[in-house]
Amino acid sequence: MDILAVSDPFIKALIANDFLQRALFTGLLIGFVTPLIGSFVVIKRLSFIADTLSHFSLAGLSIGTYLITVLGFVWIADELYLAMIFSVIGAFIIEILRGYYQNYKEISMPIVMSMGTALSGLFISLSGGISLKLYNYLFGTILTVDDGFVRVITVVTVVVVLLLVIFYKQMVMISFDETYAKLLGIKVRRFQFMSTLILAVVVSISLATVGVLLVSSLMIIPVAGAMKVGKSFKNTVSIAILFSEISVVGGLWLSYELDFPTGATIVLCNVTILLSIGIIKYFINLYRLKSDKMTTT
């Protein structure tokens, strides 16, 4: 951001600028809720859903841009609201297709993803090419979120966390063993629907931080790292959230100091943590192997 004197240290800038405070607050909320949802997504082996929905939200963003800039529907206020609606619509379509192709459930993803991408292409072109605002949504615009959207994100986070706390047992059972969940009388389809809906809303609010192309990484990468070190389910989810929050704070700080794009820097922090875990685990195993050999010879 050019408005700032970059020489100011991050903390000082944070205290002085409420747009940075908003960005940090938003980032922390999204950093909390994405790995939480992401854990269930990973267990169900649905990692592609987030990507599919974010591409479908892009259609919402481009249609929003078209409606606002070309047709002058300014009352829409922000394309992000349309992105949210589209994400939910995309989730509905995925659910319908998954019921339709019982044995080829993953077929729904490329269908919905290409629908979203095609619609985006069409409406971007109708709006006279990609605008700067739309371009920003590809990689995230956390520094420009306004108070209204911060409120939306806060409400969504609270609701999602409450739902997961209330239905913790059911969600765990469905994720790990659907057949047994049915036997326990859990309404599997109803919960599946609820989780897809939650996922859709979380995807669309996360667009603000890291953008369409990187949303799924927020959900998946911290979980992928935590899975390798977690001792239990709760432990793994907590570690994933910790990794995610470290990346948000680290990413925001680094992007400020180095003048890097924020969303990309957050994701790169996540990737760095994941790689470090891989490397550390590799050396620990190597060391164990060696000391085992020492004791046997």
Partner: peptide, 26 residues
């Protein structure tokens, strides 16, 4: 019910014996 095969169960994600049992307990 104890099924013959546990293909339906997802193994790779960490979860402890206690956590499975309490999630199944109503």
């Amino acid at each position: 019910y104890v099924p013959q095969k546990f293909d339906d169960f997802n193994y790779e994600f960490p979860i402890t014996v206690n956590e499975i049992l309490s999630a199944s307990r109503y």
